[in-house]
Design a binder for these strands. Structure first.
Lengths: 128, 128
DNA sequence: ATAAACTCTCCATTAACTGGAATGTAAAGA
DNA sequence: TCTTTACATTCCAGTTAATGGAGAGTTTAT
């Protein structure tokens, strides 16, 4: 498939997908006639995965590492396992923080009455 | 307190804290003699909050909005509530994705035996 | 055949920092 | 008091991960 189809399926912009090709993250085949990039389903799966990881602030380099968990046949599974566990730990770290951010906002919502009075117990919470 | 103390407490770099002052996100008082930035506990609480929100990819502009939920006394609580609920929804969205990323990695770990054999059921999972 | 839609490369710009130089201030020890 | 060390300031350049636009070629649809 062409780049716009791949972008659509992976919910990334065409620009971003092209960028990932430029930096050799997901390198599609090329149509020899037109020079157009030609994406497979596997390519799209990788793009999806990268999109997900990027949305959680894994850097491009970390994404490369994560992708290599899938791809690098020369790595022992021991090493792969170690790397993956480290990534999971860092995800769990973020997950914890995530909940605390959500809780802070939830608390705000609950303590606001939602009418039109312009008051809310505000900096009390902030400076706790 | 001085900037390095504020940075330490908020787990941000001094550079970042100074940057947030430059862009008028958290503007500390100034020591009139030295010109040094002087942070209060409230300032640190704000920095903490911004740090948390940034780690979840809320943009600087969104962080400003979130901060205004706490600070803007001129906003009706109705409006505040609406904004906050929208933010919570977007957090929940991210949370869902987060879990799916974690699951994908967990699955990888579980299907690896963790010994030294260089094999792992890899692109099978990717191309599912 | 020609327009619309899509693709390409290349170059500039953006957001949110990050690093480094040059310089000023403050705290601690001799 | 002097001075060394640690910390602070501004300013400017560089980085990461895109994003936007120009100019030109390709494909598809009428």
């Amino acid at each position: 498939m062409n780049i716009s189809q791949a972008a659509k399926l992976s919910k990334l912009s065409v620009k971003t997908v092209r960028y990932y090709a430029d930096i050799k993250m997901v390198e599609p085949a090329r149509n020899i006639r037109s020079g157009y990039r030609s994406y497979t389903n596997d390519d799209v799966a990788k793009l999806n995965f990268i999109g997900k990881a990027r949305r959680f602030n894994f850097s491009i380099e970390e994404c490369r590492e994560l992708l290599s968990l899938y791809q690098n046949k020369n790595r022992s599974s021991k090493e792969v396992k170690k790397l993956t566990l480290a990534k999971i730990a860092s995800i769990d770290e973020k997950l914890k923080e995530f909940h605390s951010l959500r809780d802070e906002l939830s608390y705000l919502v609950n303590c606001c009455n939602g009418d039109d009075r312009p008051s809310c117990p505000i900096l009390d919470e902030l400076s706790k």
